[in-house]
Protein backbone atom coordinates (compact mmCIF):
# COMPACT_ATOMS: atom_id res chain seq x y z
CA UNK A 1 0.00 0.00 0.00
CA UNK A 2 1.33 3.40 -0.96
CA UNK A 3 -0.13 6.89 -0.87
CA UNK A 4 -1.25 6.81 -4.54
CA UNK A 5 -3.03 3.52 -4.13
CA UNK A 6 -4.72 4.66 -0.91
CA UNK A 7 -5.82 7.98 -2.45
CA UNK A 8 -7.10 6.10 -5.49
CA UNK A 9 -9.18 3.76 -3.35
CA UNK A 10 -10.53 6.60 -1.24
CA UNK A 11 -11.42 8.53 -4.37
CA UNK A 12 -13.22 5.46 -5.72
CA UNK A 13 -15.04 5.03 -2.41
CA UNK A 14 -15.99 8.71 -2.36
CA UNK A 15 -17.40 8.41 -5.89
CA UNK A 16 -19.72 5.49 -5.14
CA UNK A 17 -20.88 7.11 -1.88
CA UNK A 18 -21.56 10.46 -3.59
CA UNK A 19 -23.69 8.67 -6.16
CA UNK A 20 -25.83 6.71 -3.70
CA UNK A 21 -26.27 9.78 -1.48
CA UNK A 22 -27.13 12.01 -4.42
CA UNK A 23 -29.88 9.68 -5.57
CA UNK A 24 -31.12 9.03 -2.05
CA UNK A 25 -31.26 12.64 -0.85
CA UNK A 26 -32.65 14.18 -4.04
CA UNK A 27 -35.00 11.19 -4.54
CA UNK A 28 -33.94 11.31 -8.17
CA UNK A 29 -31.46 9.69 -10.54
CA UNK A 30 -31.86 12.29 -13.27
CA UNK A 31 -28.68 12.68 -15.31
CA UNK A 32 -27.24 9.32 -14.25
CA UNK A 33 -26.72 6.59 -16.82
CA UNK A 34 -28.27 3.32 -15.64
CA UNK A 35 -26.30 1.57 -18.36
CA UNK A 36 -22.95 2.66 -16.91
CA UNK A 37 -24.17 1.53 -13.52
CA UNK A 38 -25.08 -1.91 -14.87
CA UNK A 39 -21.64 -2.17 -16.48
CA UNK A 40 -19.97 -1.25 -13.18
CA UNK A 41 -21.99 -3.93 -11.39
CA UNK A 42 -20.76 -6.47 -13.95
CA UNK A 43 -17.20 -5.18 -13.42
CA UNK A 44 -17.34 -5.57 -9.64
CA UNK A 45 -18.96 -9.00 -9.69
CA UNK A 46 -16.60 -10.49 -12.28
CA UNK A 47 -13.49 -8.97 -10.65
CA UNK A 48 -14.31 -9.74 -7.04
CA UNK A 49 -15.19 -13.41 -7.49
CA UNK A 50 -11.93 -14.03 -5.64
CA UNK A 51 -13.73 -12.88 -2.50
CA UNK A 52 -14.73 -16.51 -2.08
CA UNK A 53 -11.39 -18.05 -3.12
CA UNK A 54 -8.62 -15.89 -1.64
CA UNK A 55 -8.29 -13.65 1.38
CA UNK A 56 -5.95 -10.67 0.99
CA UNK A 57 -6.78 -8.42 3.95
CA UNK A 58 -9.71 -7.04 5.92
CA UNK A 59 -9.23 -3.77 4.02
CA UNK A 60 -9.36 -5.54 0.66
CA UNK A 61 -12.43 -7.60 1.51
CA UNK A 62 -14.34 -4.65 3.01
CA UNK A 63 -13.70 -2.44 -0.01
CA UNK A 64 -14.81 -5.17 -2.41
CA UNK A 65 -17.99 -5.76 -0.43
CA UNK A 66 -18.71 -2.01 -0.31
CA UNK A 67 -18.20 -1.58 -4.06
CA UNK A 68 -20.47 -4.50 -4.92
CA UNK A 69 -23.05 -3.38 -2.35
CA UNK A 70 -23.09 0.27 -3.42
CA UNK A 71 -23.30 -0.76 -7.04
CA UNK A 72 -26.35 -2.94 -6.47
CA UNK A 73 -27.91 -0.30 -4.22
CA UNK A 74 -27.52 2.24 -7.04
CA UNK A 75 -29.15 -0.10 -9.54
CA UNK A 76 -32.00 -0.81 -7.15
CA UNK A 77 -32.59 2.92 -6.60
CA UNK A 78 -32.46 3.67 -10.32
CA UNK A 79 -34.49 0.80 -11.69
CA UNK A 80 -36.94 0.30 -8.86
CA UNK A 81 -37.33 2.88 -6.11
CA UNK A 82 -36.84 6.07 -8.15
CA UNK A 83 -37.56 4.50 -11.52
CA UNK A 84 -39.84 7.39 -12.51
CA UNK A 85 -36.91 9.83 -12.42
CA UNK A 86 -34.67 7.71 -14.64
CA UNK A 87 -33.98 9.47 -17.91
CA UNK A 88 -34.32 6.59 -20.42
CA UNK A 89 -34.39 8.71 -23.53
CA UNK A 90 -30.96 10.19 -22.99
CA UNK A 91 -29.41 6.90 -21.86
CA UNK A 92 -29.33 5.39 -25.32
CA UNK A 93 -25.78 4.06 -25.56
CA UNK A 94 -25.77 0.46 -26.80
CA UNK A 95 -23.84 -1.49 -24.16
CA UNK A 96 -23.43 -4.55 -26.36
CA UNK A 97 -20.90 -2.48 -28.32
CA UNK A 98 -18.78 -2.44 -25.17
CA UNK A 99 -19.60 -5.90 -23.84
CA UNK A 100 -18.88 -7.88 -27.01
CA UNK A 101 -15.39 -6.45 -27.72
CA UNK A 102 -14.30 -6.68 -24.07
CA UNK A 103 -15.44 -10.31 -23.83
CA UNK A 104 -13.56 -11.19 -27.02
CA UNK A 105 -10.46 -9.27 -25.94
CA UNK A 106 -10.46 -11.00 -22.55
CA UNK A 107 -10.66 -14.39 -24.26
CA UNK A 108 -7.75 -13.48 -26.55
CA UNK A 109 -5.44 -11.46 -24.30
CA UNK A 110 -5.11 -12.78 -20.76
CA UNK A 111 -2.41 -14.21 -18.54
CA UNK A 112 -3.96 -17.60 -18.04
CA UNK A 113 -6.88 -19.22 -19.79
CA UNK A 114 -8.90 -20.09 -16.69
CA UNK A 115 -12.44 -19.01 -15.81
CA UNK A 116 -11.42 -16.72 -12.94
CA UNK A 117 -8.52 -15.23 -14.85
CA UNK A 118 -10.53 -14.51 -18.01
CA UNK A 119 -13.34 -12.94 -15.94
CA UNK A 120 -10.82 -10.81 -14.04
CA UNK A 121 -9.29 -9.65 -17.32
CA UNK A 122 -12.75 -8.98 -18.78
CA UNK A 123 -13.60 -6.82 -15.75
CA UNK A 124 -10.42 -4.79 -16.23
CA UNK A 125 -11.20 -4.21 -19.93
CA UNK A 126 -14.87 -3.47 -19.27
CA UNK A 127 -14.10 -1.04 -16.47
CA UNK A 128 -11.91 1.01 -18.77
CA UNK A 129 -14.89 1.79 -21.01
CA UNK A 130 -17.84 1.44 -18.59
CA UNK A 131 -18.16 5.19 -18.14
CA UNK A 132 -18.86 5.78 -21.85
CA UNK A 133 -22.70 5.55 -21.56
CA UNK A 134 -22.53 8.18 -18.79
CA UNK A 135 -20.24 10.49 -20.76
CA UNK A 136 -22.45 9.95 -23.80
CA UNK A 137 -25.47 10.97 -21.73
CA UNK A 138 -23.74 14.14 -20.53
CA UNK A 139 -22.81 15.02 -24.11
CA UNK A 140 -26.36 14.32 -25.28
CA UNK A 141 -27.99 16.57 -22.70
CA UNK A 142 -25.08 19.02 -22.93
CA UNK A 143 -24.82 19.46 -19.18
CA UNK A 144 -24.38 17.77 -15.82
CA UNK A 145 -25.42 18.75 -12.32
CA UNK A 146 -22.55 19.75 -10.04
CA UNK A 147 -22.96 16.71 -7.85
CA UNK A 148 -22.84 14.44 -10.91
CA UNK A 149 -19.66 16.24 -11.95
CA UNK A 150 -18.11 15.64 -8.53
CA UNK A 151 -19.02 11.97 -8.84
CA UNK A 152 -17.41 11.74 -12.27
CA UNK A 153 -14.32 13.58 -11.12
CA UNK A 154 -13.81 11.27 -8.13
CA UNK A 155 -14.45 8.18 -10.25
CA UNK A 156 -12.08 9.33 -13.01
CA UNK A 157 -9.33 10.36 -10.57
CA UNK A 158 -9.29 6.92 -9.00
CA UNK A 159 -7.74 5.14 -11.98
CA UNK A 160 -5.44 8.08 -12.63
CA UNK A 161 -4.11 7.71 -9.08
CA UNK A 162 -3.74 3.98 -9.68
CA UNK A 163 -1.47 4.83 -12.63
CA UNK A 164 0.81 6.69 -10.21
CA UNK A 165 0.59 3.68 -7.88
CA UNK A 166 1.71 1.39 -10.71
CA UNK A 167 4.64 3.65 -11.60
CA UNK A 168 5.62 3.61 -7.92
CA UNK A 169 5.31 -0.18 -7.65
CA UNK A 170 7.30 -0.69 -10.82
CA UNK A 171 10.29 1.11 -9.29
CA UNK A 172 9.81 0.29 -5.61
CA UNK A 173 8.64 -3.31 -5.83
CA UNK A 174 9.72 -4.51 -9.28
CA UNK A 175 6.07 -5.19 -9.88
CA UNK A 176 3.86 -4.48 -12.88
CA UNK A 177 0.77 -5.85 -14.59
CA UNK A 178 0.52 -4.86 -18.20
CA UNK A 179 -3.19 -5.62 -18.72
CA UNK A 180 -4.20 -3.37 -15.83
CA UNK A 181 -1.75 -0.61 -16.80
CA UNK A 182 -2.81 -0.34 -20.44
CA UNK A 183 -6.50 -0.47 -19.51
CA UNK A 184 -5.93 2.09 -16.76
CA UNK A 185 -4.34 4.47 -19.26
CA UNK A 186 -7.29 4.04 -21.66
CA UNK A 187 -9.73 4.58 -18.79
CA UNK A 188 -8.02 7.76 -17.61
CA UNK A 189 -7.69 9.16 -21.13
CA UNK A 190 -11.46 8.80 -21.65
CA UNK A 191 -11.99 11.26 -18.78
CA UNK A 192 -9.56 13.91 -20.04
CA UNK A 193 -12.15 16.01 -21.80
CA UNK A 194 -14.37 15.87 -18.74
CA UNK A 195 -11.46 16.74 -16.39
CA UNK A 196 -10.77 19.83 -18.47
CA UNK A 197 -14.38 21.00 -18.25
CA UNK A 198 -14.52 20.17 -14.54
CA UNK A 199 -11.44 22.22 -13.72
CA UNK A 200 -12.30 25.16 -15.94
CA UNK A 201 -16.01 25.32 -15.08
CA UNK A 202 -17.25 23.36 -12.06
CA UNK A 203 -14.38 24.37 -9.77
CA UNK A 204 -15.09 28.01 -10.64
CA UNK A 205 -18.66 27.61 -9.45
CA UNK A 206 -20.22 27.26 -12.87
CA UNK A 207 -22.45 24.46 -14.07
CA UNK A 208 -20.87 21.90 -16.34
CA UNK A 209 -22.23 22.83 -19.72
CA UNK A 210 -20.79 21.67 -22.98
CA UNK A 211 -20.03 24.29 -25.61
CA UNK A 212 -22.89 24.36 -28.14
Amino acid sequence: MNIFRLSGDLSHLLAVIILVLKIWTTRSCAGISGKSQILFAIVYVTRYLDLVTTFVSVYNTSMKVIFIGASFATIYLMYSKFKATYDHNHDSFRIEFLLAPTVILALLINQKFTVLEVLWTFSIYLESVAILPQLFMVSKTGEAESITSHYLFALGSYRGLYLLNWIYRYYAEDHYELIAIVSGIVQTVLYCDFFYLYITKVLKGKKLQLPA
Binding site: D50, K64, H175, E177
Partner: peptide, 10 residues
Protein backbone atom coordinates in the same frame (compact mmCIF):
# COMPACT_ATOMS: atom_id res chain seq x y z
CA UNK B 1 10.87 -6.87 -13.41
CA UNK B 2 8.07 -9.34 -12.76
CA UNK B 3 4.86 -9.04 -14.68
CA UNK B 4 2.69 -10.41 -11.90
CA UNK B 5 -0.97 -10.14 -11.14
CA UNK B 6 -2.06 -7.21 -9.01
CA UNK B 7 -4.75 -9.23 -7.28
CA UNK B 8 -4.14 -7.35 -4.04
CA UNK B 9 -5.54 -4.27 -5.78
CA UNK B 10 -9.14 -3.27 -6.31
Amino acid sequence: KDNVQTKDEL
